[in-house]
Write a protein that binds this DNA or RNA. Sequence first.
DNA 1: GTGAAAGCGCTAACAC
DNA 2: GTGTTAGCGCTTTCAC
Lengths: 344, 344
Amino acid sequence: MTKVTIDDVARLAGVSIKTVSRVVNQEPNVRRETRDKVEKAIAELHYTPNKAARNLASHHSHLIGLIYDDPSAYEVPSAGYVIRMQQGTLRACRRSNYELLIHPCRFRNKDVCDELTALIEQVRPDGIVLAAPLSNMPRIVDAIAATGTPVVRLSPGTDNGGQYWVSTNDREISAEMTRYLASLGHKRIAFIKGHPKHKAVGNRYLGYLDGLKQSGIEFSEDLVASGDNSIGSGETCALQLLRQRRRPTAIFAANDDMAAGVIRIADRLGIYVPGQLSVAGCDDISLARQVYPALTTINQPLSAMAERAVLTLIDSVRGKQPAVGHQIVPAKIQIRDSTGPAPD
Amino acid sequence: MTKVTIDDVARLAGVSIKTVSRVVNQEPNVRRETRDKVEKAIAELHYTPNKAARNLASHHSHLIGLIYDDPSAYEVPSAGYVIRMQQGTLRACRRSNYELLIHPCRFRNKDVCDELTALIEQVRPDGIVLAAPLSNMPRIVDAIAATGTPVVRLSPGTDNGGQYWVSTNDREISAEMTRYLASLGHKRIAFIKGHPKHKAVGNRYLGYLDGLKQSGIEFSEDLVASGDNSIGSGETCALQLLRQRRRPTAIFAANDDMAAGVIRIADRLGIYVPGQLSVAGCDDISLARQVYPALTTINQPLSAMAERAVLTLIDSVRGKQPAVGHQIVPAKIQIRDSTGPAPD
DNA sequence: GTGAAAGCGCTAACAC
DNA sequence: GTGTTAGCGCTTTCAC
């Protein structure tokens, strides 16, 4: 561990430490040749500024905290969700020379708010990215906001706080998927709702209703089932929907896992997908491509959303603009093999 | 953001800041009643020590860095691998009040060593967990070791450095899997090798050879194929193996993704699994359960290994013992539906 | 047991 | 343009 400090560099370059600091931080007002001299000294000594000292003096940690619901509490498929969020945040962090701290937590814990407050006050990340479904839980959002650290909420579903948030056009794109199914000739299009805690997923149901209306199809209570985002619940809902006398010819599930459950049940019941039943999901997790037939789904731009969140945070730290308002990153429909023309 | 400092606490409690520091750090030599007084003041003011200041003074960051190969460079299934490592490290961090910094990187980049050196010297994590396959790349291991920061290498496959490492019994457990297949009556057991860069995966091949010998089965060149850990390569290898005149009755792949590829091809060729072909994988990623039939595999204790790594690191920081030597966390065979008795 | 003083290595504010 | 002087909020050392 080289113990080179800013003093060593200043001495070697024959300038004051403040000048070294200016060079390191790319501040203006340094003559070209002075800068060169300092840079040469830095290279020669292999100097790297000590972040702890920097943080203490500057009140910036150059750390972004990513807080999300602990996936170990759930079925494993959410791994893809978490990884994609991480990828987006990491991409933005890397570009701005920030590092990423990850902090999964369980929202069911009584003292999760204290835990987060302690984390933030001790580590002092420059900004927090708060993922869904935590991002729509007022007590959590408020606890974080109370620390004064800028927060960006991911897919909060609804604006229930004063913070910046990034979301996708869940409702519109779900309407589009519904219209797409209708355009294939489907009249009986069923929908499987997601976990009620997850507001963004709730918006997909509204989009489904919009899509039906826009396609001139009448809504039917019998064609809606309620799952909890898991594969298992998708199976249960599929059974419920497919055992009706006049069963649906298309099922649109609020996430891919549930859609995978539908495909599994269709297979078991001997219903051919997509010939006799079209199935569509939402999220475009890797499972969507692994399932057979590959799932038509909505490509949720999770990583792009997370990236935007961090860029906003960093801009706000740099004083360019405060982190308020919101931004929408549009999703796209990904047509694969699980959907096709309605039978007869 | 409460700007309560140690001075405020000291003033309220009527003691010196050093005493407050002692209480906060749970040091001995504080009288019971003094401690109580201080703790009361801390609670009253909602004091949380500033980590930056602490780090600067103590030369400890209370941060662990997890460095692994950037999964975005590969097929998505490795998400499960990454998540499980993260879970293990997080568990250990949480217990010891450390936070986790994640830093995926691409080992193909020319300047990856500089990148890691800069990361470490700037952030000064108290320890580094280095995942496979980075953990068996000398230039990377050496660059990190040169910073003087304790490193624990995960599944390095072989001990090519002086650092501590944690691995699993890849070779032994692969031999056991091979014997298990033999015990089901299989005589023609094929093996699909993994990516040559990944040493730990290489040990599985050695275990396969051991297992054959222990079961009294003669090795045949024709029954070995070489993949690169991806599903696609599993498919290619499966085609190669199953198109032979005397095709194998069992295929053991060095990871689950390749095993999934085998199942897919068997399905396409109309070969019934497990009736006509037994398939076994290795890693126990979530894919293993999603595939149909569910995959018999080796449960790699990734998360337990990562947890051990961090505990070792933290012990070494606390001076209990230096991080040298190694530790083996045993794997277990997970029998599911893709393996069965050999045909006729 | 407890406290006073001296930094840790930087940046901020202001002087030159 | 560049340097000087103070801290940032803790821990360490060592005295009492």
